[in-house]
Design a protein around this nucleic acid. Structure first.
Length: 491
RNA sequence: CGGGGCGUAGCUCAGCCCGGUAGAGUACACGUCUGGGGGGCGUGUGGUCGCAGGUUCAAAUCCUGUCGCCCCGACCA
C-alpha cells in the first residue's frame, strides 16, 4: 500500500474500505462483522447524534431506554415482523460459563440453560409495545413520543463497515397515537426531520419516498424513506419512518379509552437512522485524497499547522495560533493547533486532508513577517492568503461556503445521474452505463419488481413523494401506470 | 450455505513448487541534517512462520486435520 489511498475510479469499494481505515474512522474487530468505531469516526457520529437529538426534542420527543434482550415469545406476536427478522437474530441460550475439564479455557455451563431464550434486539418494537400496553389507559396518556439511542444486532451474512455491520448504533423512535391521521402525520414529520438533517447537516441531498410492499419494514403498513445517491451511482437508504397502523397495538393489545368511554386500539409509528449514515457521508462527499466532512459535523473545524525552523519561530507561531483559536472560539468553531514536533508540515497536510478537516491554516516565518496566514479549504483544496485580522470575518463565511458547496456538488451529481426512461432497453442501458436514479413507469406488481431485480439487480428504491401523476406504460409489462417510481442498484 | 483466496514483524507482503533453522518495504525507537505538500542519512527494536498432529537427521516449506479471516454470490438498514 502506497502513501495515498486507492482511486475511486479504479476500485470504489477498495477506496471506501481504505479510506475508513486510513482516516481513522473505524476498523474491523475481533468479532466478525463488528467494527470498532475510532475516536475520529465516533466524533462525527456524536455530532450527528447531537443534532438529531435536538431535532427530536424540538418535535416533542423524549429519550428513554429499553433492554437489549427480548424474550423470544415477544418476537412471535406480530406475524410479518417475525418473518422479517427471524433469519438474522442472535439468541442468548445460557447465562453462565465454567472452567473446561482440561483447564484450558471456559465452556458454556450446560446446567445454566435459560428457560426462555432471549433475543438480542434487531429492533425494539416488540419490547416497547409490550411496555406501551402498561403506559396507555386513556386518550389522555397519548400521544407517547419516545426515542432511544441504542445498539442493535442483525446477523447479516455479508457485512461492510458502517454500511452493514452485525452490531450497529442507531436511534429508534416509537410513538403511539389516538388517530390514524395523527400517526401518519408523525411518520411524515419524522421523515421531514431526517431529510432536513441529511440536507442541512450532512450536506446530502435526499429523495423522500414511500417503499413498495416488498421493501417495506416487516410489520409496517407503510414505510417512508430518504434515499441518497453515492458517487459510484448506487443508492443508499439513509433513513426510514414507518407508519405501523394498528399492527403492533393489536399484537400487544395496546388500547385506550376514548372520550366516549370506548376501547380503541392505538396507532403507531417507528423511525430510525443508524451509523450507516457514516457510510453515506463518506461515499457522498469524499475524494481520492480522503474524507471531506461538512463543517456542521466536524469536531475539528480548523487545524493550524506551524512551519518553523527553530523553537523561537514555533513559539511566535504558537502565540498567533492561540489568538486565532480564541477569536474563532466565539463562533463555536473548534481549532486545533498541531504543534507536534514529530511530523513534518507536508505530512500533517496530508494527514488532516485524509481526515477531512474542513479548513487548514498554515503559518510560517514568511507569514509572521507579512502578518498573513495561508488558508486552505478541504473541499476544493483551494488556498488563499489572508491577513490575521481578516480571519474572524472570513472563516465563518468560508465554513458556510464549504457546507453549501459540498451540498451543491452532491446535488448536481445526483441531478446528472437522475434519468427518465420509457423502455426496458433504455433502462438496462442507462443502468449499465451510468447507474444512478432511474425514473420509470411500473405496473405496481411485486412480480414485475422481482423480475426486474433478478434481471438487472436494480430495485425500486421508492415511489418519490413529489412524483407527479403522469400516464404511462410499465417499462417491463407495458401495463398502464400513473406514476413514475425510482429505480437504482442499492447498497 | 455455494464459489474463490489468504493466515510469516504493528501493517503490506516475499520465501514454500525444489526441506537446511527467517527476509524486504513500511511503521516504531535513537542520533543527525532538515522543515511552505507524505524528507535524507546512520544505528537499532521487533517474528513459538494461525493451531494440532504426522513424515524426516532436519519443516515456514511436504502430508493430515483443525481454527480463523477476506472477497464474490443468495439475504438485508
Amino acid at each position: 500500500m502506497g502513501k495515498g489511498i486507492p482511486k475511486r475510479s479504479e476500485d470504489y469499494s477498495l477506496w471506501y474500505n481504505e479510506l475508513v481505515k486510513r482516516a481513522d474512522l473505524a476498523e474491523n474487530s475481533a468479532v466478525r462483522g463488528c467494527m470498532v468505531i475510532k475516536p475520529h469516526g465516533f466524533s462525527i457520529w456524536e455530532k450527528m447524534q447531537a443534532s438529531l437529538d435536538k431535532m427530536f426534542k424540538d418535535t416533542g420527543h423524549s429519550n428513554a431506554y429499553f433492554p437489549i434482550f427480548i424474550p423470544k415469545s415477544f418476537l412471535s406476536k406480530e406475524a410479518d415482523h417475525v418473518e422479517g427478522f427471524a433469519k438474522e437474530c442472535a439468541v442468548v441460550t445460557h447465562y453462565r460459563l465454567k472452567n473446561a475439564e482440561d483447564k484450558k479455557g471456559v465452556i458454556v455451563d450446560p446446567d445454566a440453560k435459560l428457560e426462555e431464550e432471549l433475543i438480542v434486539r434487531p429492533t425494539s418494537e416488540t419490547v416497547i409495545w409490550s411496555t406501551f400496553k402498561n403506559w396507555v389507559q386513556s386518550y389522555r396518556d397519548l400521544p407517547l413520543l419516545i426515542n432511544q439511542w441504542a445498539n442493535v444486532v442483525r446477523w447479516e451474512m455479508r457485512t461492510r463497515v458502517f454500511l452493514r455491520t452485525t452490531e450497529f448504533l442507531w436511534q429508534e423512535g416509537h410513538t403511539a397515537h389516538t388517530t390514524k391521521g395523527e400517526a401518519l402525520a408523525e411518520t411524515k414529520q419524522m421523515l421531514d426531520v431526517y431529510a432536513d438533517f441529511a440536507e442541512k447537516f450532512m450536506a446530502l441531498p435526499v429523495i423522500k419516498g414511500v417503499k413498495t410492499e416488498s421493501e417495506r419494514f416487516a410489520g409496517a403498513v407503510d414505510t417512508y424513506c430518504i434515499e441518497a445517491l453515492m458517487q459510484d451511482g448506487k443508492a443508499l437508504q439513509a433513513g426510514t419512518s414507518h407508519f405501523l397502523g394498528q399492527n403492533f397495538a393489536k399484537a400487544f393489545d395496546v388500547k385506550f379509552l376514548n372520550k366516549e368511554n370506548k376501547q380503541e386500539l392505538v396507532w403507531g409509528t417507528s423511525w430510525g437512522v443508524s451509523t450507516r449514515l457514516m457510510g453515506a457521508l463518506i461515499m457522498a462527499h469524499s475524494d481520492d485524497d480522503g474524507l471531506i466532512i461538512p463543517p456542521k459535523l466536524a469536531s475539528i473545524h480548523v487545524v493550524i499547522v506551524p512551519i518553523y525552523k527553530n523553537e523561537g519561530q514555533l513559539a511566535s507561531i504558537g502565540e498567533k495560533a492561540k489568538e486565532i483559536k480564541d477569536s474563532l472560539d466565539k463562533f463555536g468553531y473548534t481549532v486545533k493547533f498541531d504543534d507536534r514536533d514529530t511530523y513534518k508540515p507536508g505530512y500533517k497536510f496530508n494527514e488532516w486532508e485524509l481526515k477531512g478537516i474542513p479548513v487548514r491554516i498554515a503559518i510560517g516565518p514568511r507569514d509572521l513577517e507579512n502578518g498573513t496566514v495561508e488558508v486552505a479549504r478541504r473541499d476544493t483544496k483551494e488556498k488563499i492568503s489572508l491577513k490575521f485580522e481578516e480571519l474572524e470575518r472570513e472563516i465563518p463565511s468560508l465554513m458556510e461556503n464549504i457546507q453549501q458547496n459540498i451540498y451543491d456538488r452532491a446535488l448536481k451529481f445526483r441531478e446528472e445521474k437522475t434519468i427518465h426512461v420509457d423502455t426496458y432497453e433504455e433502462f438496462k442501458k442507462v443502468l449499465k452505463e451510468k447507474g444512478g436514479f432511474i425514473l420509470a413507469h411500473w405496473d405496481g406488481t411485486a412480480e414485475t419488481e422481482e423480475r426486474i431485480k433478478n434481471e438487472t439487480k436494480a430495485t425500486i428504491r421508492c415511489i418519490p413523494l413529489d412524483s407527479p401523476e403522469e400516464d404511462g406504460k410499465c417499462i417491463y409489462s407495458g401495463k398502464p401506470s400513473i406514476k413514475r417510481v425510482m429505480f437504482a442498484v442499492a447498497y
